[in-house]
């Protein structure tokens, strides 16, 4: 859930208007049942990722097809995330540096992180996550003096309908997380104690991220008003620009950008892992050679988006029309199949 907070406000406010901020938490909470489903699959089939499980349950070919879809989605979206790194830097603080430098720098980090394995990746997120939280809280806290009074009111003037659309806009974001979870469970412990711990962890992540993202949207609506929030492409970056510390230090967005880079690297790297896992499960390809191949693909996809304006749109299309339906259908079906099989075995 690394980079959701950047474009989130624009989406939900466009859909939900002034009350868009309310949609964030319900949208993210959808992740919880899915997370629990995956964990219950984990307890049944330890040390296997969801692709392997679906191969076992649905037969080889269906499993392979799912794996290929999974691979395409994660590879494509991961490349898009890499492109986002380039876009936000070029758009907001270093305007004249060519794109490929950002792509290369970001990819270098992603690749280096991936080379060091999932454990280092987990620790990296563990270190960077508090930084992100601190940066967000600072960003929000320092923006309080720019709040326009009354921009949040009236609450629910348009009724509940826009909120439902807003929630639909949010759901793809937790689905990314769910898809990552589907891959990573291979490496998770499956003991009883560990399962309980993981469940708590899923709840905690969803709510922590949900509350933070909600605050991020809220502060943007409060400061910019709904119209401006929709208009700004990355409102949080603009917010970072407006921050002033006691009238002397202004424009600390470049400091915030350093942290956002970490978030995007985490996200991109998660998709990198997902792609390599899928490659490994479906086509049985692994090793340095294929990881290099994946990074080349990432780079290729990123270079495909030299037009920054179409990038956000492309990302949101992938989210809404690929990630969302795929995860939405695949995981419950798999879970149901596993349940059904389990029960028939008992009889």
């Amino acid at each position: 859930m690394g980079g959701t907070f950047l474009p989130l406000a624009t989406f939900v406010t466009a859909a939900g208007g002034r009350d868009g901020w309310m949609t964030v938490l319900p949208g993210l909470v959808v992740a919880i049942p899915y997370g629990l489903m995956i964990l219950s699959l984990l307890s049944k089939y330890p040390q296997k990722n969801l692709l392997q499980i679906s191969e076992r349950l649905f037969g080889k070919w269906v499993g392979k097809i799912i794996g290929v879809i999974y691979m395409i989605i994660s590879g494509y979206y991961g490349g898009l995330m890499l492109a986002v790194i380039g876009q936000i830097f070029e758009q907001s603080i270093i305007a004249l540096t060519p794109r490929w430098v950002f792509y290369l720098g970001g990819l270098m980090l992603v690749f280096y992180l991936a080379e060091n394995g999932i454990e280092v990746f987990a620790r990296f997120s563990e270190v960077v996550f508090p930084l992100i939280v601190i940066a967000m809280v600072l960003n929000i806290g320092l923006s309080i003096q720019r709040i326009e009074p009354g921009e949040l009111m009236p609450i629910l003037s348009e009724g509940l309908k826009p909120l439902i659309f807003g929630v639909l806009k949010v759901i793809p974001f937790p689905m990314e997380y769910i898809l990552f979870l589907a891959g990573i469970i291979k490496f998770l412990p499956s003991g009883k104690q560990a399962l309980v711990h993981l469940k708590v962890e899923v709840w905690r992540t969803v709510f922590l991220v949900g509350i933070l993202d909600m605050l991020v949207v809220l502060i943007q609506i409060l400061v910019f008003g709904p119209q401006e929030t929709v208009r700004l492409s990355f409102g949080l970056l603009v917010l970072g620009k407006m921050v002033e510390i006691s009238r002397t230090i202004a424009g600390v967005e470049s400091l915030f950008m350093m942290v956002w880079l970490g978030a995007l690297v985490i996200k991109s790297c998660a998709f990198f892992f997902m792609t390599t896992w899928a490659l490994e499960t479906v086509l049985n390809l692994k090793g340095l050679k294929w990881r290099v191949a994946v990074s080349v693909i990432f780079l290729g996809i990123a270079f495909g988006f030299l037009r920054g304006t179409s990038l956000t749109k492309e990302a949101s299309i992938v989210e809404s029309y690929l990630i969302l339906p795929f995860a939405f259908v695949w995981i419950p079906t798999l879970w149901g199949a596993a349940r059904w099989k389990c029960e028939t075995n008992v009889r």
Binding site: I94, N116, V120, F124, V127, V128, M257, L261
Partner: peptide, 20 residues
């Protein structure tokens, strides 16, 4: 060469190194 982008790439690379 790259401003804060470079610094953060360097710092993150260092962090990954330390973590490994």
């Amino acid at each position: 060469v790259l401003g804060f982008f470079g610094v953060s790439v360097g710092l993150y690379a260092g962090l990954i190194h330390l973590l490994s």
